[in-house]
Amino acid sequence: MNIMTETALESAVNDKMNGTPNETIKMRGRKVCVFYGEKQALFDVDLDVRENQVTALIGPSGCGKSTFLRCLNRMNDTIDSARVAGKITLDDEDIYDPKIDVVELRARVGMVFQKPNPFPKSIFENVAYGPRIHGLARKKGDLDEIVETSLKKAGLFNEVKDRLHEPGTGLSGGQQQRLCIARAIAVSPEVILMDEPCSALDPIATARVEELIDELRQNYTIVIVTHSMQQAARVSQRTAMFHMGYLVEEGETDKMFTNPDDRRTQDYITGRFG
């Protein structure tokens, strides 16, 4: 676990907090429970995700933070044994309502995974994948434009503009992860879920992705799961602490890192967790 002095945390937090945050609630989870077969992984989680903010989910391994994240775009549906109870809304619409089309939902709530997973296709095709399946490009030129904008937003365009038609798997780990972010952006989602997006990257690539996350906040709502306390402090405006399947506490990141209400949060973020 990362050991961090409280002063370092404080300064990291203060660097990030500027301007008045938008308080519109984009996604709302109420009494969310998740079961994998007989085993319950998440217990009655109430958590709001605010628009144009970065919400960090922290907690020790196996605490349910990734499980909660995967509920937000119903990726748990792909696991046969998983069952979700409770209510999750996106813009006050219940996303588990049978009338909701899960394909449409996932186009609105995109996802970036822990390990960069570009498709074994060219860089261009990787980014164009989403727009193609959703029919976002009317003309041929549209697609080129979407790909270019997405790659630019992901801060990758300058590095790859001369080799758009080379395989995406040939990029470095950090570039691959930014390619995956570009791929997620290309379908113009409203929310982007990131499941430990930097855990497979070196510190320099991590810094690039973190910068990117901060830029993306202007246009997207972001939920990020992370194991790195510094990362949560650096990129997020709000933090939610999970433990053993329960939401321990949730609040503004600077408050969470300087003056948490719960003893467990205090222990965890200072690295004293047993």
Binding site: N73, M75, T78, V103, E104, L105, R106, A107, R108, G110, M111, F113, K115, N117, P118, F119, P120, Y129, G130, R132, I133, H134, C180, R183, A184, V187
Partner: peptide
């Protein structure tokens, strides 16, 4: 990870398989 990547972008199962 390939399946998740595709499904996470809102592709259907058959699109994921085909593409």
């Amino acid at each position: 990870a390939m399946r998740d990547g595709s499904l996470g972008l809102g592709a259907t199962r058959s699109e994921t398989i085909k593409r």
